[in-house]
Simulated scan of single mutants.
Amino acid sequence: MCTIKSIYFTLILSIFMVQNAKTQDWANLKKYQNENAILKSLKPEPKRIVLMGDSITEFWSTLNPDFFIGKPFVNRGISGQTSPQMLLRFRTDVIALKPNIVVILAGTNDIAENTGPITVEMIAKTIFSMAELAKVNHIKVILCSVLPAFDFPWKKGLQPAEKIVTLNKMIEKYAHSNQIVYLDYYSVMVNEHKGLISRYSDDGVHPNKTGYEVMNPLLEKAILLTLK
Rank of each mutant, 00 (worst) to 15 (best):
V120M: 07
H138K: 12
S83Y: 12
I104L: 00
P153F: 01
L105Y: 12
A106T: 12
L133T: 06
I111V: 09
L88V: 14
R91V: 11
L87N: 06
V141L: 10
A149F: 01
T108M: 10
I171N: 11
P99Y: 01
M170S: 08
M86P: 09
A106D: 09
V103R: 00
N137P: 00
K135A: 01
C144N: 04
L158W: 07
D93F: 01
K163N: 01
V165I: 10
V103F: 10
A149H: 05
S145G: 07
V102A: 04
C144V: 10
A131V: 01
K140E: 11
A134N: 07
N137V: 02
S83N: 00
Q85T: 05
K125M: 09
N168L: 02
P160M: 03
E172G: 13
D110E: 12
I101H: 03
T108R: 10
D93K: 02
L88W: 15
M170L: 09
N114E: 02
L88N: 13
V120W: 09
T126S: 11
R89M: 04
L147G: 03
T119D: 05
A124M: 14
L88E: 06
V120C: 10
C144E: 09
M170V: 13
V146C: 02
I142D: 13
L147E: 09
L87E: 00
G157R: 06
I104C: 03
K173P: 11
E162F: 10
M122L: 08
I118S: 15
Q159W: 15
L143E: 01
T115E: 08
F128H: 02
I95Y: 04
G157Y: 01
W154F: 06
V94L: 03
I101V: 08
K163I: 13
K163E: 12
N114R: 13
I95D: 01
I118N: 10
L87H: 06
V103K: 14
I104S: 06
F128A: 02
K173L: 03
N137K: 11
Y174C: 12
H176Y: 14
L105C: 15
N114K: 03
V141C: 08
Q85S: 08
N168W: 02
E172I: 15
P153R: 05
I123H: 03
G107I: 08
L143A: 02
S129H: 05
G157E: 06
P160R: 09
A124F: 09
K163Y: 10
S145C: 04
T166M: 12
F152V: 01
F90N: 03
V141D: 00
Y174N: 12
I164V: 12
M130R: 05
F152K: 00
M122W: 05
E113S: 07
I142V: 00
V146W: 08
E121R: 11
A112K: 09
N137A: 14
Q159L: 12
D151A: 08
K98W: 13
S83I: 06
I118R: 14
N168G: 13
K156P: 02
V165S: 01
M130G: 05
I95W: 10
C144Q: 03
K140F: 05
P160A: 10
K135E: 15
